[in-house]
Write a protein that binds this DNA or RNA. Structure first.
Lengths: 159, 159
DNA sequence: AAATCATGTAACTTATGTTGTGACGAATCT
DNA sequence: AGATTCGTCACAACATAAGTTACATGATTT
């Protein structure tokens, strides 16, 4: 099943913002994530509602981080993007009449709840600042493309 | 995001089969799950490939459990239905060039892997027989509809 | 005041995967 | 032979994130 990438993308954006002086426009961000400015505004809206970022219209406007990266956890961002359902599998019905299906659902519910709790605990324990510090652990063995992504203004690169 | 209910449904079916003498037709099963016989055959095919059930064509044919419920775990069934991706959220790209996104993905990958490992461990530790024994823990407080679901032959009810 | 820039938002399309459905062939039993 | 039942293909239905277009609103610059 296709996966929801809003959490991953917002983390990416926010860390960039933490390394960026001044506001970033939706268009800059969209280029970084290889997507559309509207998608950015749509997703960032959740962060704005939580007070994690602010947005300004007009000349020199754009998005600004409203608190430092070490005061934002994965859990904060997860909740800000709508707290989507973590699991792609689940019961067919919530309240079946059949006692067998009730037992199945109860068991699955327990197991999934435990895994979700662990996940959210871990989310709560990781700040964006810690991820940003984690550049020493690249996913790829080769060093090709080991740089921050472009945002249209190469001057803004910090790596 | 809509959830994959194949695991839950197959658990439901298999436990019914464990309580049922003789073969069950796809049509009977479909009525129990309030769905279509083709969906049943499609999903049960995975179980047959693993050797957990057998199917017979023609008169008196249908599906039969090939091993007792206490020799089947949630993990077995999960894998038999295609081992679908557990999580509904994930990274936008697997191999981004940007080091920031790499760090984000690495962090998320770790956390999700830990949660998935826990989940699968729990799956491996629960047999279908244990779920079947678990009828004493109903999800609903009221007792309305506290019976096995119909399969067209009320005689077959065991509750 | 006008032009420009940038967000805000609605509406529509696209993409992906499960589920639902109809049709038809193959195998098995009576 | 006829009825039953699985096996499978093909396609529609549905849900949701993502992509896109269009236009209104507000802020800054000139």
């Amino acid at each position: 099943m296709r996966q929801d990438s809003r959490l991953s993308r917002m983390l990416h954006v926010l860390i960039h913002m933490g390394h960026h002086d001044g506001a970033m426009t939706s268009e800059m961000i969209a280029k970084m994530l290889d997507t559309n400015p509207v998608v950015i505004r749509r997703t960032m809206a959740g962060l704005r509602e939580k007070g994690y970022v602010t947005s300004e219209k007009g000349h020199g406007g754009g998005w600004t981080l409203a608190r430092p990266l070490d005061e934002l956890t994965l859990l904060d961002i997860y909740r800000a993007v709508g707290e989507p359902s973590v699991f792609a599998v689940g019961p067919a019905y919530d309240m079946p009449g059949c006692v067998i299906e009730q037992a199945v659902n109860a068991t699955l519910k327990d197991v999934f709840a435990e895994a979700e709790q662990l996940l959210l605990q871990r989310f709560a324990g990781v700040t964006l600042a810690e991820i940003a510090r984690d550049f020493s652990r690249p996913t790829r063995p080769d060093n090709a493309g080991e740089s921050e992504c472009q945002d249209g203004n190469p001057d803004d690169l910090l790596a």
